[in-house]
Amino acid sequence: MASTSEQSSSVGMPQLDFSNFDNQTFWLLIFLFLVFLVIRLLVMPRMEETLTNRRKIIEEGIQEAEEFKDKAVEIEKSLNNEIEAARIKANEILRNCKEEIKKNTQEALADIDIKIEELVEISDKNIITLKSEAKKEVKDLSKKLAPEIVKALIP
């Protein structure tokens, strides 16, 4: 089991084999430096550029959207104003119509009243004449009938 090439395996933890710490440190520092160079020189400028660009575009979009929103609010306001004006106008027209109808109705009613009165007067006159005629007829009839009745009563 004890092989010469794996002499450190019998130690237990290869991590505690201090003989290669200088090697590990050397390569770690080299790669740390290389990664740092890559990040500082290649990654960060490109990434910042991309992110800034995106942020700018998003901000522009938001600004544009806000402008549109303002515009929409304005349009809505003017639309509401127009609707309000139209409503007022409609109400006025309605009121005018109502008044006209009322006036017309009153006029018509007045006309009808006059006509009715006239008719009543005429019919009153008719009634009076008819009454007097009837009275006259009754008188005549009674004058004619009286001798007859007397004749009949006195044998």
């Binding site: 290649l42 995106r54 575009i57």
Partner: peptide, 14 residues
Amino acid sequence: IILLFVFGIRKGEI
């Protein structure tokens, strides 16, 4: 790291 962070973002798309 280079593949992901250099070639991955090379285009820099929005």
